[in-house]
Computed example of a mutant assay.
Amino acid sequence: MKIQLKRIDNDFYFELKNERGHVTHIDSTAQVGGHDMAPSPMEYVLMGVAGCSAIDVISILKKQRQEITDYRAEVDGTREEVNGAKPFKNITVIVYLEGDIDPEKAKRAAELSFEKYCSVSKTLEPTATIEYKVIVNNKVV
């Protein structure tokens, strides 16, 4: 896996491209000298957690013939300073599912994702506690 980064302006606005040609951008907030024209690198980490777990959960539920009509997630990360860096200390994910879905299967799919399959979560595991909650058809599982 390889990513190319190219500086766009004289500050912190960058274009990133993967090997398949997909392009995205990164910037920083105005507080640290950026223009806030794109998500920050740490926001992309949280997006990675959301996307990785979504792919896992949906894949597992589809294999179980569960009918998903909507999938949303909210990810909240808190950071703590450690020797000048600010890694994530805690990450909380709330998964919202709608459809003809067995709540226990949804709960198990999330468990498998966060505790076994999600490479992003597993990468963060040594430094961050990742908690998750599953809500199926507006009911906490």
Score class of each variant (00 low, 15 high):
6 K>N: 08
104 E>S: 00
23 V>T: 10
130 I>Y: 09
84 G>I: 13
54 A>T: 05
17 K>V: 10
127 T>Y: 12
19 E>V: 08
114 F>T: 00
21 G>D: 12
56 D>R: 05
51 G>D: 06
20 R>C: 13
2 K>Q: 11
87 P>T: 09
141 V>N: 11
96 Y>I: 00
13 Y>W: 10
79 R>C: 13
13 Y>G: 03
29 T>H: 10
105 K>H: 00
138 N>R: 15
101 I>T: 00
96 Y>C: 00
5 L>S: 08
60 I>R: 03
38 A>N: 05
133 K>H: 15
49 V>T: 03
140 V>Y: 14
19 E>T: 07
123 T>F: 13
125 E>R: 14
131 E>F: 07
107 K>F: 05
5 L>N: 03
64 Q>V: 04
53 S>C: 07
109 A>D: 01
28 S>E: 14
26 I>V: 14
28 S>L: 15
117 Y>L: 11
99 G>W: 00
53 S>N: 04
91 I>R: 00
19 E>C: 08
56 D>W: 02
14 F>I: 07
136 V>K: 04
94 I>R: 09
5 L>R: 02
52 C>D: 03
139 K>D: 13
120 V>M: 07
127 T>K: 14
86 K>H: 12
133 K>I: 14
138 N>H: 14
8 I>V: 11
45 V>W: 01
46 L>E: 01
55 I>Y: 09
31 Q>W: 07
97 L>K: 01
34 G>W: 06
93 V>T: 01
81 E>K: 13
72 R>L: 10
40 S>R: 09
88 F>K: 04
72 R>F: 08
51 G>P: 01
115 E>S: 11
4 Q>S: 10
7 R>K: 11
32 V>A: 13
101 I>V: 03
